[in-house]
Structure formats: structure tokens, C-alpha cells
Design a protein around this nucleic acid. Structure first.
Length: 268
DNA sequence: CTGTAATCCTGCGAGC
DNA sequence: TGCTCGCAGGATTACA
């Protein structure tokens, strides 16, 4: 999401939206037809990100909020480019040369319009969205982790604890911190919690440098693939030798998700 | 408070 | 070739 926002920023800021097209297929949250007219003629002020949510903020205060789910793509493309299958929203930009397109094969993503910053903040507050993973307070994180009986994997995936960490980066962070994914938060020492916090930041920083991870569908805002998948140490490496100790990486199911780890480097 | 499984969808690769 | 099965960057809901 960070890469998408960074890509889109120079392409969208201060640009006016002159037309909106919507597909008939429904997304995770319904797109209200009234939003078409509401958004038409709006000038984009800035692009921001909060957790996994992409915020397209208009000069008027309106805010288009997009979640890419598993297979979402948000890109600026030349209007002459043929519209690919599963393109659900098309915003034509001033001059009509370019369009912002939202494409999502599995339709787990969503796009909603908020009338004001206040409404947006209420939305995040209602959903109890946790703090950003960068600059995460150790006091806060340690408290959350150590007061939980859940596994570290479940804690990392919980957007109310920390926002923005998904399945890939949870596994990679636990590998870097040398912590077993099924270790309980309450059984985690202060030293381990600090290692985990630092690992999250380290992994995400590097992942952003590499423009994200493309396994299948992910593309940045300019249509480029990510490169971080080439550096995975745990995720998707079941059976392959650990880069540290050569022990085969194992895959288990935790918190309903595929979880990859080195049984030797990541002990309980 | 936990955890698990099902659900929303489409597509792809493995195995037969 | 063609079929079925399992699995996939997420999040919510029902149920034990």
C-alpha cells in the first residue's frame, strides 16, 4: 500500500476527476451510485495511507478510501489502454489522457467515499484501527503482546494491535526476530517483544525499498511489480533450506493462515 | 477471552 | 486435454 501511494502521489495530486465509471460487479462494500456525481469535478489534494487503507483526499474534504484486499490493483494508466477484466472503478482525470483504475480479481477489496476527515477518523476509531508499524511505541506494543493469550502470529495479523502487517510480513518478521509463530504473547519476554518490534520495522522498511511483494497480482501504482518476493526468508519457502541453518522451512496453519517458519532458528 | 471454519470471489498449478 | 483439489498479499461472522 505504501508503494502504491508513493507511486500515485505525483500522478494524482492536484488533478481533477472529470468522469467516473463503475462496473456492475459488487465489491466487499457497496459503491453507492450517488458517489459518482459527488466525486465528479473534485480535485485531488493529497494521497495518504493508514494501515492497509489508501486515502485519496479531495480539496473539498471528501475522501475516497480504498482497500485492495488480496488481489486489488490501483493504477494510473493511459486512457487508450484497453480496460482489463475485473476493472471495477475508472476515474478519468483532467485532460482525459489518463485514468485512475481500480481492478480487483477476487473482489475482496473495497472503495468507499467519506464526506469529511471527521467521518473518516470516526471510521478508523469505530474499527479500532491500531497504530502504524513504523515508530511503534515499545511500551504500547509490549503491553498489548504480553497481555494476550494469543499466538504471536495472530497478534501480528490483528489490525487493532498494529495496522498494516499482513501474512507475508508477519512470517518474515517472526523469522527475523527468531521467534516461533505459535509462541503466546503472554509467554514472551521483554527482550523478545523488542526484537519483534524491531523486526517488523526492518522487514517493512526493506519491503518498501523493494516496492512490495508480487506473488501473483500485486502491482504498484505505475504498474510495476514488487521485488521483495525474491528476498523472502520464510514465506512461501516450505521445504526449502533455511538461509541460516539449512533446516527445511515448515508450513503450519495458524490464525487461519498459512504460516512459514524455521523450526530450528525460531524456537519457543 | 481463545480458536476454528466458513464466507465472500476468481484463477492457477499440481496431480491424476 | 480436461478434470478436481488445494491454495492464494484480507477481513468478518458464526459457533465451540
Amino acid at each position: 500500500m505504501e508503494t502504491v501511494v508513493r507511486d500515485l502521489r505525483p500522478l494524482l495530486e492536484k488533478k481533477k476527476i472529470i468522469a467516473v465509471q463503475v462496473s456492475k460487479q459488487k465489491l466487499r462494500k457497496p459503491w453507492k451510485p450517488a458517489w459518482n456525481n459527488r466525486i465528479n469535478g473534485q480535485v485531488i489534494d493529497q494521497l495518504n495511507r493508514r494501515g492497509k487503507w489508501i486515502l485519496v483526499e479531495m480539496e473539498s474534504g471528501l475522501c475516497l478510501v480504498i482497500h485492495l484486499g488480496m488481489t486489488g490493483q490501483l493504477r494510473v494508466v493511459d486512457s487508450s489502454q484497453t480496460r482489463e477484466d475485473h476493472t471495477h472503478l475508472v476515474f478519468s482525470l483532467e485532460g482525459d489522457k489518463e485514468q485512475l483504475r481500480f481492478r480487483d480479481v477476487r473482489r475482496f477489496g473495497s472503495a468507499v467515499l467519506f464526506e469529511s476527515q471527521q467521518e473518516l477518523e470516526n471510521f478508523f476509531k469505530e474499527n479500532k484501527l491500531g497504530p502504524e508499524p513504523f515508530g511503534l511505541s515499545l511500551e504500547y506494543f509490549q503491553d498489548k503482546v504480553q497481555k494476550s493469550d494469543r499466538t504471536l502470529k495472530a497478534i501480528l495479523l490483528d489490525q487493532q494491535v498494529v495496522s498494516g502487517v499482513g501474512n507475508i510480513y508477519a512470517d518474515e518478521s517472526l523469522f527475523v526476530a527468531k521467534l516461533h509463530p505459535s509462541l503466546r504473547g503472554a509467554d514472551t519476554t521483554g527482550t523478545k517483544v523488542r526484537k519483534l518490534r524491531d523486526a517488523i520495522e526492518f522487514v517493512l522498511k526493506r519491503a518498501v525499498e523493494q516496492r512490495g511483494s508480487t506473488i501473483r497480482n500485486y502491482l504498484g501504482g505505475t504498474g510495476l511489480r514488487g521485488q521483495y518476493q525474491d528476498e523472502f526468508l520464510a514465506y512461501g519457502r516450505m521445504g526449502q533450506p533455511c538461509t541460516v541453518c539449512k533446516t527445511p522451512i515448515e508450513r503450519i496453519r495458524l490464525a487461519g493462515r498459512s504460516t512459514h517458519f524455521c523450526p530450528r532458528c525460531q524456537r519457543r
